[in-house]
Design a protein around this nucleic acid. Structure first.
Lengths: 184, 184
DNA sequence: GTCTATACGCGGATAGAC
DNA sequence: GTCTATCCGCGTATAGAC
């Protein structure tokens, strides 16, 4: 056998990692299978030995990316609620996150594409988002506030990314941060 | 001459109206020129006598749609700040807006596509959004709050549209509304 | 101003060699 | 498991008739 056992699983993980970056940056629909695979250093033919269709890639991507976001939220070292949320706001609401979607959270990056996808993709997105909401609720002590913060985070990044001027991007995310800090 | 003077201008307006609905529903990139024109009852050939390219259509669309949103905000009949904002929250944050993107605000519908577009589209988007922000600032008496509300509105609709279950869509927008009302 | 026809490239997916 | 080659459909854009 020319390939070690376990190789396929590792390769799949690598493909998801690289495809995720590309999808968040350029958009999933806007990127061809060729583009995803070229970024990973293989050809489109190899793609279909890992995923049965492009749609399956989207599902795998949504799942992997959201679990990654969840993992980051869980790695927050603070216990005190005020410290915990301040840490998250600073990590999420900054210029680097606005300008480097490829390294950022999948929620704002692929939200509209998920919204326009089949139900199975939305089910996955919903399921993982609910885990995130539960996590925020634990730290904020309130379900309403948890949704409020999540919406605010996604909205701020989404709006800021549509701005042409960096100064305005900064104004939006800083205002959003100030607004949240004043209301938690 | 087989066509009345002024006809072209009217037709262009009609094309923008119908294309706007389709773009907000299916996505701008995901819809072909054929699709836009078929919805308007003409063929793709006719398209190019109104717009020089698909990219020009996007620019015209962003401008027309944002001005329409701005107009709706200006039609709010209330003077009292609390009444004014409550009216807007109820109009924006409801299930119908989540489920019928074609009749809804362009901000959440095309945000990601604008973010991934050329600079000229972003400039337009930015310019019109700033007018909206100025309007909200006048009624809320605070620039920070104005950005906070705008981000919250966009984020809530964006997230809710990715949910598979209607009950969860409702939970998100109602939570977002409650969160805002408690903090203004 | 709108139509039909068409050129041309890209994207998704499959077949078969290695 | 990955490669090259290829089929086929769709999308942007243009040319020329009416």
């Amino acid at each position: 056998m020319r390939y070690k056992p376990g190789y396929k699983q590792e390769k799949r993980k690598e493909l998801l990692q690289i495809s995720g970056q590309l999808a968040k940056q350029q958009g999933f629909a806007a990127t061809g299978v060729d583009g995803f695979m070229k970024a990973a250093g293989v050809t489109s033919g190899a793609f279909y030995s890992h995923f049965s269709s492009k749609h399956e890639l989207l599902k795998a991507l949504v799942e992997a990316e959201l679990q990654q976001s969840l993992a980051m939220w869980q790695e927050n070292p603070h216990d005190d609620p005020a410290d915990w949320i301040e840490f998250e706001l600073n990590r999420y609401l900054n210029l680097s996150h606005v300008q480097h979607a490829d390294r950022g959270c999948v929620l704002p990056a692929l939200a509209s594409e998920v919204a326009r996808s089949e139900d199975d993709v939305k089910q996955l997105y919903q399921q993982e988002l609910l885990r995130g909401h539960a996590l925020f609720t634990r730290h904020l002590g309130c379900e309403i506030k948890a949704w409020g913060v999540l919406c605010q985070l996604v909205g701020a990044i989404t709006l800021a990314r549509g701005m042409a001027d960096e100064s305005l991007q900064k104004q939006i995310i800083e205002s959003s941060k100030t607004f949240l800090k004043a209301n938690l």
